[in-house]
Amino acid sequence: MSFAHSYYFAFAEIEYKPTEKRIEATLTASIHEMEDVFKSKKLVKKHLEGMSHSKENLKKIEAELGADFYLVLNGEKVLLKLLDFECTLEGKINFYLYRDEIVLPKEASFLVFKTLMKAYENQQNKASLIIGDHRQTIVFLKNSEKQKINL
C-alpha cells in the first residue's frame, strides 16, 4: 500500500546566527500531506508545485505555517518570515523561513512545532537546532508540541 498518510515526519532545521542575530530555518514536509491541508484551507486549488510564488501567496502560507511553527522567547510568540518554498521531485516541500534581530534568551527559549498534527493523528515532528558547533534534536508529539531549546 502507498499514498497513505502519517508517512513522514515534518522536519525543521533551524540555525541561529548570534553575530547576525538572525534565525534561518528550513521546514520540510511531504508535499502530499501539506497540499491536503492547504486545500482544506483553500490556500491552493491544485498542486503546490504549480502555486505561484507571489508575495500574496507567500504571505498566506507564512500565516498558515506560523500558526503551528513558531518560537516563544521570554514568553512572547515570535513568528518567522517566509522567504520562499520549493517542491522536490522526491515528494517533499521545503519552506525557507527567517527572522532578523533576534536574541535567544538562554533560559526562556521554546519552539512550538505542531505542523500537520491537527490533520494527521499520528503526526510527529522533529527539529534540529544549530548554534555554532552546538546541536540539539527535539521530537514533537501531540502532547509535547512545545519544547525547550537547550543550546
Binding site: S2, F9, F11, N122, K126, V139
Partner: peptide, 29 residues
C-alpha cells in the same frame, strides 16, 4: 537521516508489530 537522528524514544525498531509502529512510512518502508 532526518527520521533516524536524535531522540530514539519516539521511534520504534523495525522489528515492531505493524499496529504499534510510529511513523509507518519511515519505519516500515
Amino acid at each position: 537521516v532526518d527520521y533516524m537522528k536524535g531522540d530514539p524514544n519516539n521511534i520504534a525498531p523495525i522489528m515492531t508489530n505493524s499496529e504499534s509502529l510510529f511513523q509507518f512510512g519511515n519505519n516500515a518502508y
